[in-house]
Design a protein around this nucleic acid. Structure first.
Lengths: 220, 220
DNA sequence: TAAAAAATTTAGACTAACCTAAAAATATAT
DNA sequence: ATATATTTTTAGGTTAGTCTAAATTTTTTA
C-alpha cells in the first residue's frame, strides 16, 4: 500500500524531530513543523498508527516503527539526491533548493531514484553536508562537531549546517564560508561568545554565537 | 492563484483532445481520459469555468480559454522536458518515461523548468518526437505525415509516434524503428493495407496498418 | 497535593475530488 | 415528429486532510 504525500511528510518530520536516539516526538512539535493545528496532527497520528508506521499511545508522543523509519529514510534519500541534482547539474544555489526538493522527494519510482543516484555518481552528502542514505536505507551520521565546541587555536573543516534557512545560507555565502572551507578559530569573545575565525588561511571575520551554533565542522 | 495537480491534468487533457483547431471536447471523452466518471468531470468543469480557464456551456462541451491554454502548454512543456531528461540523462527507454513524467510535470517552479531546459540544451523535441513548447508558450506542430499517407517507393524519415503506449514503443524497438530512421515503403498489401518497408537501407520488414497509423514521418 | 496551566484529544465542520443513482437535455431512429 | 437511446447534469454521499471549539489528560506550580 502506497503512502500519501502528506503521510510521507509526517514520517520525515517525525524522523528528524526524534533525533538519533529515536526519542518521542510531541503532538505540538509536529503541529509546529507541519504548519497545522494539533488537532489535525492527532488525526494523522491515529492513521499512521493504524498503518503500523508509528508507535503511538495517546498523550505519550510518537516514535517511528521500523517500517515507518524505512519510509522516512527513503524520502530523505530522495530529497537529498534531488538537492544534489539541483545544485550540481542545474546550477541552483544551496539556499534555493529546499522547497523544490520538498516536492521532488515525493515522486514515486524506485527506479528513478536509483538512476538518479547513478547519474549523480553516488554522492555521499547533499549540498548542505547532510549524509545521503544508501539504497538499502543505511544512514550513517558523520561525527560532526558544532563550531561552538571548538577551542581557540583549532583548525577545522566546514562540513555542514544545522539551519537550512535561505537567509542563513546566504549569510554564509557572503562571508565566504562554504562546505570544505578551513576554519581556524582565532579568538572567542567571553561576553557574547562571538568568535573571530580565519577562512582558508585568508580573510578573518567575526561570527556570532547564533552562526557558530549552526555550523558543523570536523577536526582533522 | 495556483492550480492543483488535478486541474492541471484536466487542462492538459482538454488541450490534447481539442486538437489543433480548438474543437469542443465532450464530458464523456474527458471522463474516459481522466479515468473518472462523467459526473466528476462535470464538477471539475464548473470549477475550471469559474476560474476562467475554460469556456463551458452546459451540454455544449468545453474549450480552453487563452489563460487555460497557457497553463496547459506550460504543463506540456514540463512533461516533455522531463521526458528528455529521463531518456537522455538517466538512460530510461522511451517506453518507460511517460508515467514518471506525469508526476514531474506538476512540480511547480518556473526557474526549475528554465534551468532544466538550459541543462538539456534547449531540446526542440521529446523522445517521442513531440515538439517542446518554448518558454513563452509557443508550440509549433511540425508537419508530420502519417505513414499510411506515404506511397510505395517514397523514402521518409521516422519523426514521431501517435500512440505512446509502452507496448507499441517496445514493438518499434524490436523492429529497429527509431526516431530518425529512414523508412522506404517497398510495397503495400491491398487486402489489409499492411506494408513492407526497408529500414535505413537495410532490413526489410512487414508492418501492419495498426502500426502505420501510429507512425509520424517526414518527406525529405 | 490540589489548583492552574499547558498539552492533547474529541466532536463536529469544511473543501477538493471523487462516487452512484436519478433526472434532464440532446441526439438518433423509426 | 415522436419514441428511444445516449449524453450530461444534479442530488446526495464518501474520504483525506484540514479547521475551531470544547473536553480531557498531563504537567507544573504554589
Amino acid at each position: 500500500m502506497q503512502n500519501s504525500f502528506t503521510e510521507e511528510n509526517y514520517l520525515k518530520i517525525i524522523h528528524s524531530l526524534s533525533g538519533r536516539e529515536g526519542v518521542e516526538v510531541s503532538t505540538n512539535a509536529l503541529a509546529e513543523s507541519t504548519s497545522t493545528r494539533a488537532a489535525s496532527v492527532t488525526d494523522m497520528l491515529r492513521k499512521l498508527a493504524e498503518k503500523g508506521l508509528i508507535h503511538y499511545k495517546k498523550y505519550q508522543g510518537v516514535r517511528l516503527t521500523d517500517s515507518g523509519e524505512k519510509v522516512a529514510i527513503k524520502v530523505i534519500r530522495k530529497h537529498r539526491l534531488w538537492e544534489v541534482f539541483l545544485v550540481e547539474k542545474l546550477g541552483f544555489g544551496w539556499d534555493e533548493v529546499h522547497d523544490i526538493a520538498e516536492e521532488l522527494e515525493h515522486i514515486p519510482s524506485e527506479i528513478l531514484v536509483e538512476k538518479l543516484d547513478t547519474f549523480l555518481g553516488h554522492p555521499r552528502f547533499d549540498p548542505h553536508g547532510d549524509p545521503i542514505p544508501d539504497a538499502k536505507g543505511n544512514l550513517t551520521e558523520p561525527d560532526y562537531t558544532i563550531l561552538t565546541d571548538i577551542q581557540v587555536g583549532e583548525k577545522v573543516l566546514m562540513m555542514g549546517v544545522l539551519d537550512h534557512a535561505p537567509s542563513f545560507l546566504q549569510h554564509l555565502d557572503r562571508s565566504g564560508i562554504t562546505l570544505g572551507a578551513v576554519i581556524e578559530v582565532k579568538e572567542i569573545n567571553e561576553y557574547d561568545k562571538s568568535a573571530s575565525v580565519q577562512i582558508n588561511g585568508g580573510q578573518t571575520l567575526f561570527i556570532s554565537l547564533e552562526v557558530s551554533k549552526n555550523l558543523l565542522v570536523q577536526r582533522r
